[in-house]
């Protein structure tokens, strides 16, 4: 009896002592846009205490128009940030900057070009020579791919004001958008569905919404990176298959311009189009990346002349924190 009591006391002491044994690691995480359902997994992890359970005190830093969190990341002011797509992740390699992608938030890139139906702008090929509005950071990434593939030129570019107003007033307007958001707003305003051209359909088939961090952190504190990745994956799992309302509340608080209607539309679009959890994620878990898919992406880009074929693209990512079947979506 005494022995049992002593073991029980010892166990109780361990359990009580464990949480107090180490303080949570402070982590800053930069987004590449303002708070929206496309970051639902991270907000869920924050709002439901998943990050806290993993010993992480996470502050989410929103992006926005004219905000370039990548600069803050490489200057050491952010622990992690979202790199919008595979193309931008390979910038690290091109510029010999020691940063890597550690997980792929999206298996499919939700970027689209959006146009009006019935004016001769219904697919990518028809857009050659026509005015197109894309943002400055897009001009530095997938615009270059479209240019190379469809023979577009910079003279077609119109200023992109992060506003749908030109789309509503000008029937020939073509602008960039996310498949999970603007089409909803257009339909709300005009009652008509716009023409949606997904860049992944055009062959720009890289990952999107990747999480990146410094090589230094990966080498000196891989445990921190692993915890952040796993907690984020769990956050996505809970967001997509559980009750997303904590994330919704956090997003609405962080971004007063967000509406519940848009929030729900984006959430449903993420799920129905399998943006986060389709393809390799079904086998390998949310956040999955494979050498095969990276190679295919690199070869496509190199073929259009955007990269030197000898570039060591594999230096831009690491698979050590994903592909372990963690957060495998429900079938």
């Amino acid at each position: 009896m005494n022995r049992l009591v002593r073991i029980a006391t010892a166990l109780a002491a361990c359990v009580l002592a464990a949480p107090a044994a180490r303080a949570a690691d402070k982590v800053t995480f930069g987004l590449d846009w303002v708070a929206e359902p496309e970051y639902g997994g991270y907000y869920q992890a924050l709002a439901t205490g998943i990050y806290k359970k993993y010993g992480l005190d996470v502050s989410i830093v929103e992006g926005g128009p004219q905000v370039n969190n990548a600069e803050l990341l490489v200057a050491g002011k952010l622990t992690f940030d979202i790199t919008s797509n595979s193309f931008l992740a390979l910038n690290f390699v091109q510029q010999q900057i020691p940063f890597v992608a550690v997980m792929a938030g999206f298996q499919k890139d939700p970027d689209i070009l959006m146009a009006h139906p019935g004016v001769g702008t219904d697919d990518f090929a028809e857009l050659k020579g026509k005015p197109i509005a894309v943002s400055d950071d897009t001009r530095a990434s997938w615009w270059l791919y479209l240019k190379a593939k469809y023979g577009y030129s910079d003279s077609q570019l119109k200023p992109y004001g992060f506003s749908l107003a030109p789309f509503f007033t000008d029937p020939t307007d073509v602008q960039e958008a996310y498949v999970t958001s603007e089409p909803y707003l257009v339909q709300q305003q005009t009652g008509k569905k716009p023409v949606v051209m997904m860049i992944s359909d055009a062959g720009f088939d890289g990952y999107a919404s990747l999480v990146a961090t410094s090589e230094k952190l990966v080498t000196t504190d891989p445990d921190l990176v692993k915890r952040f990745v796993e907690a984020s994956i769990l956050g996505w799992y809970s967001f997509l298959y559980g009750d997303p309302s904590p994330a919704f509340a956090a997003i609405l608080k962080a971004n007063p311009d967000m509406t519940p209607g848009l929030l729900h539309y984006g959430y449903n679009a993420l799920k129905t189009r399998g943006i986060v959890d389709s393809g390799d994620a079904r086998r390998l878990g949310i956040g999955a990346m494979t050498d095969a898919r990276w190679q295919k992406f690199f070869d496509q880009m190199a073929a259009t002349g955007l990269y030197d074929k000898s570039m060591d693209y594999q230096a831009g990512y690491t698979l050590q924190f994903v592909d372990q079947g963690f957060g495998k979506p429900k079938q």
Binding site: N68, E71, A133, D136, R139, S141, S155, P159
Partner: peptide
């Protein structure tokens, strides 16, 4: 800017985005 040849402001932004 777009259409009209890009000025220095755009090049600064673009270089920033491309790190």
């Amino acid at each position: 800017s777009g259409g009209f040849a890009s000025g220095l402001a755009y090049r600064i932004l673009e270089a920033g985005y491309r790190l």
